[in-house]
Amino acid sequence: MRRFLPLLVLVICLTGSGALAPVFAVQPDEMLEDPALESRARGLSAHIRCLVCQNQSIDDSNAELAADLRILVRERLVAGDSDQQILDYLVDRYGPFVLLEPPTTESTYLLWYGPGALLVVGGLALAVFAWRRRRPEVTQPLTAEEHARVKALLDGAADEGKET
């Protein structure tokens, strides 16, 4: 049974199963009159993970829990909560997992600073590489074998000229 579970989740999240008709993400009756608050609500929703369809935000998800959370977010906005207060409210209940943008804490330093560190380390490595490569090319006399290859090459190049 476990093998089919994810497919089931996919079906519910993206289509709604037979009995449940597909539902859009945001419903007209959920939306707030005040366009400024509504746009804050949309922005916040895009940062909150739907816990049923785990890779969607509640703004995209068709799941019922996502709808409940969208309404909750709007209620708290109307009640005058700041964006951060709303996110904290959800984290208290669902844990940091609910945030699609992970907070910068000790356990996510590597996540947030890793890419920058890689770029810097890579850049430094390249600078060292370039510094060492800066020396002019040392010319060494050709060996007899190399002489033969150069000759073969030059002949080959001449042939090539004829071909084209």
């Binding site: 895009a46 935000s57 844990g95 940091p96 609910v98 699609l100 943008e101 992970p102 996510t108 996540l111």
Partner: peptide, 23 residues
């Protein structure tokens, strides 16, 4: 890093985080 981070963090500390589009 972003794709595998939640998996690694959970294995090491048991913490669950999401790394989503905003990241």
């Amino acid at each position: 890093i972003g794709t595998l981070y939640p998996l690694a963090l959970e294995s090491m500390t048991g913490e669950k985080v999401s790394v989503g589009p905003p990241y």
